[in-house]
């Protein structure tokens, strides 16, 4: 079997971010340097919407790890991406509570509206869709996470309004709701599921 070709040279991500790199590394003792792995992956992913092979090798070198160890962490979590996701990365929770509350219908709606399937990014790079496991907001199911923001009790009408806003490149304020509240008419319950 032929050996793997070396990756082409690219400008290191942290070359001009030494201060930020030092700040992240300083959070952990020297013997726990590898603990900075996930924050460094996040740092790259926030900027580039994915973590390429070149970045994996760069992070491995910074932390004194093998690239396979970095990939091992990346592949354990669904939150890291080897390929670029959209500017609006839609994550639909499909675990039990959300599923019972209509997450499957929500997922179908998104698939139809965006012509995307799970794991896919549209050609314009605007939207990507991913089905994820429990987001820990079962009381306000179904939950849609857009990038790092939760949108709760996402009905079809709310979802449509949200997509329309994102098509205009505006991300509205999240619809955060209280779940399990016995006071349905409490002020913070206003704007419930349509």
């Amino acid at each position: 079997m032929s050996s793997r070709q070396p990756l082409p040279t690219v400008t290191p991500f942290f070359a001009d971010k030494q201060e930020r790199l030092s700040e992240i590394l300083a959070r952990y003792p020297e013997y726990g340097r590898r603990s900075a792995l996930m924050p460094l992956l996040w740092e790259v992913q926030r900027a580039e919407r994915h973590v390429s092979e070149a970045r994996v090798e760069e992070i491995a070198e910074i932390l004194g790890l093998h690239a396979t160890e970095v990939k091992g962490v990346m592949s354990f979590y669904g939150t890291y991406h080897e390929h670029p996701v959209g500017r609006y990365h839609l994550q639909v929770c499909r675990t039990l509570s959300c599923s019972l509350a209509g997450a499957d219908t929500l997922a179908d709606f998104l698939e139809d509206e965006l012509d995307l399937v799970n794991g896919e990014t549209d050609p314009e790079g605007r939207f990507s869709l991913q089905y994820v496991e429990c987001l820990g907001s079962c009381g306000t199911a179904p939950v849609l996470q857009v990038n790092d923001t939760y949108f709760e009790r996402v009905s079809r009408s709310r979802c449509r309004a949200l997509l329309d806003a994102m098509r205009r490149d505006t991300l509205p304020e999240p619809t955060l709701e209280r779940g399990g509240d016995n006071e349905p008419n409490a002020p913070d319950q206003e704007g419930g599921a349509a």
Binding site: M74, H81, E82, V117, E120
Partner: peptide
């Protein structure tokens, strides 16, 4: 399966 991704279709 895109080879370098852990996400498959």
């Amino acid at each position: 399966h895109p080879f370098d991704s852990h996400v498959y279709r």
